[in-house]
């Protein structure tokens, strides 16, 4: 297992290098002078040239790239062009809010999704099954901004049960609506996948054998079928963790949630190259780490899986 983890971590290095290299060159190709945007589209050329020189933007692209890789190897993500804030500090500041939102949405998505999926499979072709799957399809199809606005309008502004927007003092009540908005889609996806996986497992011989031995239906489902049905579900949940941790741009914008999604959009609009690169590196590392954890988790779900 240890050797597997080390090997996997070593594999991530070229992947990470590939990602940062592509991002570095792609965002440099995109037209739009970061200095002009930063200075509000006006200024004298001499001052702008000085600012460019300070940022190293006057260097040949290859040299800028080598400098960037050097910084990255030292663990330095650079400093924002937009406000001189260290990139790592900007990401760190917003990570808390994004992590809370992601955790809430994931919890909601996983618990609701698995519960609905498993129950639908067990009660196949029942009213519950049809109802749950209809809601799941609606959940996958409904645009996030529409769901978010509707929830806000009804629960915050009509009923007044929860606060409208913002992070407030960080208390749970501010998390409820964004968490639901963001959690609906993962819940719907997880429900549909759990149902199909569960149906497949429930048709296996060992499940029939367990039932024939006189085990109760609940025990068979919970102890024997569920664990095996969860392997593909865990993979999907893993990819959802990565996406959610990378920031949910629309949800964060609607609910004025101070997370990484908004940081990445603001940075893109401002051509804040170090911040864009930093956020992409963060996203890439998150994906790689979560994928590694998902791979490792397979062994716990299915002891037949070995990593030698």
């Amino acid at each position: 297992m240890f050797a597997y983890i080390v090997r996997k971590i070593l594999y991530t290095i070229p992947v990470l290098w590939g990602v940062v290299t592509v991002v570095f060159f792609v965002i440099n190709i995109v037209p739009g002078d970061p200095v002009a945007i930063m200075t509000g589209q006006r200024g004298d050329e001499e001052t702008l040239a000085k600012i460019r020189a300070d940022m190293g933007l006057d260097l040949p692209l290859g040299q800028q790239y080598v400098r960037f890789l050097g910084q990255l190897c030292r663990g330095d993500l650079g400093t924002s062009y937009r406000n001189n804030e260290p990139v790592s500090s900007a990401i760190w500041t917003r990570l808390g809010a994004t992590a809370r939102l992601a955790a809430g949405a994931l919890f909601l998505g996983t618990v609701l999704g698995i519960a609905a999926g498993v129950l639908s499979a067990v009660k196949r072709y029942s009213v519950f099954d049809y109802g749950a799957m209809f809601v799941a399809i609606a959940g996958v199809s409904a645009p996030v901004f529409w769901v978010g606005l509707l929830l806000l309008l009804f629960f915050a502004y009509t009923l007044g049960w929860v606060p409208g927007v913002g992070y407030g003092d960080g208390s749970f009540k501010y998390l409820i609506l964004p968490m639901i908005t963001l959690g609906i889609r993962p819940a719907a996806l997880t429900a549909r996948l759990s149902r199909s996986c569960m149906l497949e497992v429930l048709s296996q011989d060992y499940v029939r054998t367990a039932r024939a031995k006189g085990l109760k239906r609940t025990a068979v489902v919970m102890k024997h079928a569920l664990k095996n049905a969860m392997i593909p579900v865990v993979t999907v949940i893993g990819t959802q963790i990565s996406s959610l941790l990378s920031g949910a741009v629309l949800t964060e914008s609607i609910f004025a949630w101070p997370g990484i999604g908004r940081l990445s959009v603001d940075s893109l609009l401002a051509r804040d190259l170090p911040m864009i690169r930093g956020v992409v590196v963060f996203m890439a590392v998150t994906f790689l780490v979560v994928n590694l954890l998902v791979d490792i988790s397979y062994a716990f779900l299915d002891p037949r899986i070995r990593y030698d």
Binding site: L152, L153, I254, A256
Partner: peptide, 18 residues
């Protein structure tokens, strides 16, 4: 200075008195 990117939401917040 309260950051609310979405104009519709900002208007709702104004209506609510926030």
């Amino acid at each position: 200075l309260v950051v609310i990117p979405d104009s519709s939401v900002a208007y709702l917040e104004f209506g609510k008195g926030n």
